[in-house]
Amino acid sequence: MTVLAQNSRTLQRLALMAVVMFGFGFALVPFYYRICEALGVNNLVGRADASVRNTQVDYSRSVSVEFDTNTRDLPWTFRALSNVRSIHPGELVQVDFEVRNQRGEAVTGQAIPSFSPARAAQYFHKLECFCFERQTLKAGERRVMPVVFVLDRSIPSELGTVTLSYTFFDVPAADAAAGGRRS
């Protein structure tokens, strides 16, 4: 091969190298975002996800909450689907309760909560509860009802175990006992 041909071949290769490196400069752009994503650095989207996470939850401790269920003067069976839950203060918790009407006719009842120890009551913030209103069950009906609550972060650390107890009362009987206050 003559020197001239050799030179033009070298020129072509080197020029190709320059063009490839020009492209490489632009390829660094997606590469930068990929590598940041893979290494978890500078990940603006990831950081946004993290900020959605509830910073109000105190993951450093947990409180054991027991659920107790009773009925009074009602032909109902009533139970919590989980008897005890370990809950971080500040965490949003949902607990389901099951109630079944054993009688052949509709019955109306209302649940009344109580707490043990009693001072735990002020740290329970209920967002949803079947106890907020009367429940009427048709003959033989089974119903699963939620309680959604947050345990306040300021709950004292000595309250390691808290019991939440519900008792269902027969509403007509209760009304009668109240002397027809219900109009």
Partner: peptide, 8 residues
């Protein structure tokens, strides 16, 4: 190798 990267 690197001048084209600066150009980019």
């Amino acid at each position: 190798a690197v001048m084209p990267v600066l150009a980019g």
